[in-house]
Computed example of a mutant assay.
Amino acid sequence: MSVETMRELQGYGFFILLVLMVVILYSYWFHLVKSEKAGRRNYEKYGRLALDDKLDDSLVESSADNRSNK
């Protein structure tokens, strides 16, 4: 296999991988938006998770909420 052919295959592979990653990213974003609109999760609560990480801070979700939703 020549170097030119390998470079061409590498370019096609990169483009296919890039398109695949974009599709995965947008499908994950769509899933997050859809689940928040349906009321299954409230992702705005998780935005302050890194800031409110002390032991005496309130929980984002309790385990009883997870069991009752299933």
Rank of each mutant, 00 (worst) to 15 (best):
T5V: 04
M6L: 07
R7H: 04
R7N: 05
E8I: 02
L9R: 09
G11S: 08
G11V: 08
Y12C: 05
Y12D: 09
G13Y: 02
F15N: 13
I16C: 07
I16N: 06
L18K: 09
L18S: 10
V19T: 11
L20S: 09
L20Q: 07
V22M: 12
V22C: 07
V23S: 08
I24A: 11
L25P: 00
L25R: 10
L25N: 04
Y26A: 00
S27N: 14
Y28D: 09
W29E: 15
V33H: 11
V33L: 12
K34R: 14
K34I: 12
S35Q: 15
K37C: 03
R40V: 13
N42I: 11
Y43E: 00
E44S: 10
K45Y: 02
Y46T: 14
Y46V: 13
G47A: 06
G47T: 07
L49E: 05
A50W: 08
A50D: 07
A50I: 02
L51Q: 09
L51C: 05
D52E: 10
K54W: 00
K54Y: 03
L55P: 08
D56I: 09
D56E: 10
D57P: 00
S58K: 13
S58R: 11
E61P: 02
A64V: 13
R67F: 08
S68R: 14
S68N: 10
N69Q: 11
